[in-house]
Design a protein around this nucleic acid. Structure first.
Length: 149
DNA sequence: GCCAACGTTGGC
DNA sequence: GCCAACGTTGGC
């Protein structure tokens, strides 16, 4: 089993939104590195740190789990959708996603500043400057350090 | 294949 | 809202 961190802007889709649904298809990934993780490495049963970005309280707000394998992201074929990609071929889709389900909320939020001040996490991709990847692999060691605080 | 211009991400 | 960092685009 693998561990991940998924970023979401809470005004788009928050941990509370996830708590209110049976599961949610994680759409809108439009970065090739994140796509490669989604398509090739994120597996059913993997665990996910749910991270709120671009908001007042930035940080890890909960845990989710992956409940499906990779599936083509239907929004890439929807001209009405902001995630529409005219260059994606339905025979060979560019963008993928997985279903994720709520596991639990973490309160209080584990803030980014907390993570940044933990010397054990100094090499964790999330706290590196310029990090913009919306899906990050998390090692078991980092997972444990982040949740045991 | 280089690289400048542009758009996006995301913390603050 | 600002701005640094980064990815993508497109001309050459």
């Amino acid at each position: 089993m693998n561990y991940w961190l998924f970023k979401s802007e809470p005004n788009e889709f928050s941990i509370d939104d996830l708590a209110n649904v049976e599961f949610e298809f994680w759409d809108g990934i439009r970065n090739y590195q994140a796509r490669n993780f989604m398509r090739d490495e994120v597996k059913k049963g993997d665990k996910v740190l749910f991270y709120h970005s671009n908001c007042k309280d930035v940080g890890v707000v909960g845990i989710a789990k992956v409940v499906s394998g990779a599936k083509p992201d239907p929004t890439q074929f929807d001209p009405e959708c902001k995630y529409f990609d005219a260059k994606s071929d339905p025979e060979n889709p560019r963008w993928y996603g997985v279903d994720v389900a709520f596991v639990k909320k973490i309160t209080p939020t584990i803030s980014l500043s907390q993570l940044k001040t933990n010397p054990k996490l100094a090499e964790f991709q999330l706290v590196k400057r310029g990090n913009r990847l919306s899906i990050l692999p998390v090692t078991k060691a980092y997972w444990d350090i982040i949740l045991k605080h």
